[in-house]
């Protein structure tokens, strides 16, 4: 682990150096191809005047709300689908179909319904995440080995207990993978949604940079968005996933 992160740091430094050299070569004007120093000072500026912080907080708040709603809706739909073959063949198939829609395609509809508003963005976030979560919950539950359920039932587990103590834990590896995918879809649709509306989020900072023709700001905000996405997806979800896999003895999956 230590060795791989060291390699990664060396790689980053080399990449920045190469970037610097290309920028210095002056092939393109610096409003087309920004230099590392320009981007870093934009980054420093955004951090010191706290605009990046406020943008991040605004985006994460929206994300938490939207994703929270998506979790509640996805878990309910997923459990419902796993309860009956009929619901699976009807509602399940519908959701599977709708899920193939890139979530940003919901945006025009959301704007028609809610106007250029926070609600529209929230809607796109929820729409982006619900499908993956629903499918993960329902397939996770239907693939629980019957022997676990039988064993639990002969030991007196029933109804809610059976769900809390056996079915959900047994389905957890599948559920985590789906929730993680739902999160990354939602994060993408949130950024896209924030671009179109005075939203105070990171997406808007990106848009402002474009309007000011400030490429340094645009790239700096891209870095922020990437870092947050990376931190949450890789560090948070991957570490939970690894914990579960280790506990189950499933071995490491290609991340």
């Amino acid at each position: 682990m230590g060795e791989t992160s060291l390699t990664f740091i060396v790689f980053c430094m080399a990449a920045i150096l190469a970037w610097h050299m290309v920028a210095e070569a002056g092939i393109w004007p610096d409003y087309v191809f920004p230099s590392p120093s320009g981007v870093f000072s934009a980054l420093a500026h955004g951090i010191t005047d706290e605009s990046f912080l406020h943008g991040t907080i605004a985006s994460l708040k929206r994300m938490a709300m939207g994703f929270g709603i998506a979790l509640v809706v996805g878990i309910s739909l997923g459990v419902a689908i796993s309860q009956s073959k009929h619901i699976e063949h009807t509602l399940g198939t519908l959701i599977l179909g709708v899920q193939t829609l890139p979530s940003i395609c919901w945006l025009p509809l959301a704007v028609l319904w809610f106007g250029l508003s926070d609600k529209a963005i929230m809607f796109v976030v929820v729409a982006g995440a619900v499908g993956s979560i629903t499918m993960a919950i329902s397939s996770g539950i239907s693939n629980v080995p019957p022997i676990y359920i039988n064993a639990a039932r002969t030991m007196g587990a029933k109804e809610l207990n059976l769900y809390y103590e056996v079915i959900f834990p047994a389905a957890l590896p599948t559920i985590i993978a789906g929730v993680r995918q739902g999160w990354s879809f939602a994060w993408r649709s949130l950024m896209a949604g924030e671009l179109i509306y005075v939203s105070a989020g990171l997406g808007q900072l990106l848009q402002v940079g474009r309007e000011l023709n400030d490429i340094n700001q645009v790239v700096a905000v891209m870095f922020v968005i990437m870092s947050i996405g990376f931190l949450i997806e890789r560090l948070f979800f991957t570490s939970i996933e690894m914990d579960v896999r280790k506990k189950w003895g499933l071995g490491a999956k290609r991340a």
């Binding site: 022997i147 030991m155 007196g156 103590e165 506990k247």
Partner: peptide
């Protein structure tokens, strides 16, 4: 019932598995 495959719960430790039915 004790099954041919152990049917132990992989998300629990040995002792937690034994406690399961008592918890129920």
């Amino acid at each position: 019932v004790m099954f041919q495959e152990s049917a132990l719960f992989p998300w629990l430790t040995a002792i937690q598995n034994i406690e399961f039915g008592l918890k129920m």
